[in-house]
Structures are given as structure tokens and as C-alpha cells.
Amino acid sequence: MNQQWRTAVSATLHCLTGCAIGEVLGMVIGTALGWSATPTVILAIVLAFLFGYSLTLGPVLRAGVAFKAALSVALAADTLSITVMEIIDNAIIVAVPGAMEAGLASVLFWASLAFALVVAFVVTVPVNKWLIGRGRGHAVVHKYHH
């Protein structure tokens, strides 16, 4: 595996971490509150973006970058990656019959969510490789890594 693919996998794992935290939290909250699929998915998406951006924003801020510039870096680095990941994982979990209604104690709920995140990761790696190859996406964050 060449360096661009390794970097794309690393960037996608980074994105998956933030997305998974937000996605799982949103799905758990919505499901626990008995919400229907639409508000649960919206909450999951909002939290996925929030956590995804936060995981990039924190290290960039610690590198001494001003908040507004750091936010621009996080938006440039993660927006397309998070968007693709969220489209894929939410489309899958909504498409699995009964997954959204299964409840937190259900294997169907957790297996569907895990499967959706794995597929989203696989689909998003080439997206990140394409971005990195053009000096975009996670490539804009590299100058802030120590």
C-alpha cells in the first residue's frame, strides 16, 4: 500500500472516530427517547459533524492556530469525508428492515449500526485518497501535526 493510501486510511479512521461517536450517541439518544427515524437520523448527523470537526479542531488549536483559521482548516479537512460517511451509514441503517425500531437491547440495532459504519469507512477511503492526492481534505491538516 503506497503512502497516499495509508494516509487516506488514517484520515478515514480519524473521520470514522468522530462520526461513530456522534452517530452512535445520536442513535442511542433518539432510540432511547422513542423518536422516529427522521429526528433520530438528524440528531445523529448533527452530532457526527460536531464530533468529527472537534477531533480535527482540537489538535489544530493546540498547534497555535487562531480559532477562526482552525475552524476553516477543520471544515476543509473533514466536510466531504464526513458527508460521504454520513450519507452511507445512515442510508444503510434506515434501509435495514426494523433496525431503527429495534431498540437499544437488540442485536439488530447494534449489528446494523456497526455494519453501516464499516461500509461507510470502506466507501470513504477512496474519497479521502482522492482529496489527499489533490492537496485537499486531511492533507490540509498535516502541517499542524507534530
Rank of each mutant, 00 (worst) to 15 (best):
M1L: 12
N2Q: 04
Q4E: 04
W5E: 02
R6K: 12
R6S: 01
A8L: 13
A8Q: 11
A11P: 05
L13P: 10
H14W: 14
C15T: 14
C15A: 07
L16P: 00
T17L: 14
T17M: 10
C19E: 08
C19V: 03
V24M: 08
L25T: 15
G26F: 01
G26S: 02
I29M: 06
I29A: 15
G30M: 02
T31A: 14
L33Y: 01
L33W: 10
W35Y: 09
S36N: 03
S36I: 04
A37I: 12
A37D: 04
P39K: 05
I42L: 07
I42Y: 00
L43A: 14
I45D: 04
V46S: 09
V46Q: 14
V46D: 11
F49E: 02
F49S: 03
L50M: 07
L50P: 06
Y53S: 11
S54D: 06
L55E: 01
L57E: 07
G58S: 15
G58N: 10
P59R: 11
V60N: 09
R62Y: 08
A63Q: 09
G64E: 03
V65Y: 13
F67P: 14
K68E: 11
A69K: 04
S72A: 15
V73C: 04
A74D: 05
A74Q: 03
L75A: 11
A76T: 07
A77E: 00
D78W: 00
T79S: 12
T79D: 00
I82G: 09
I82S: 03
V84A: 12
M85V: 04
E86T: 13
D89I: 02
A95S: 08
P97S: 11
M100P: 05
A102T: 01
L104P: 07
A105Y: 00
S106L: 07
L108P: 10
F109Y: 09
F109D: 11
F109E: 11
F109P: 13
F109I: 08
W110L: 05
F115L: 13
L117P: 00
V118I: 15
F121S: 04
F121G: 00
V122Y: 11
V122C: 09
V123D: 01
T124D: 01
N128F: 05
W130N: 10
W130M: 10
L131N: 03
I132Q: 08
G133Q: 00
R136D: 00
G137H: 14
H138T: 11
H138I: 07
V141S: 10
K143T: 10
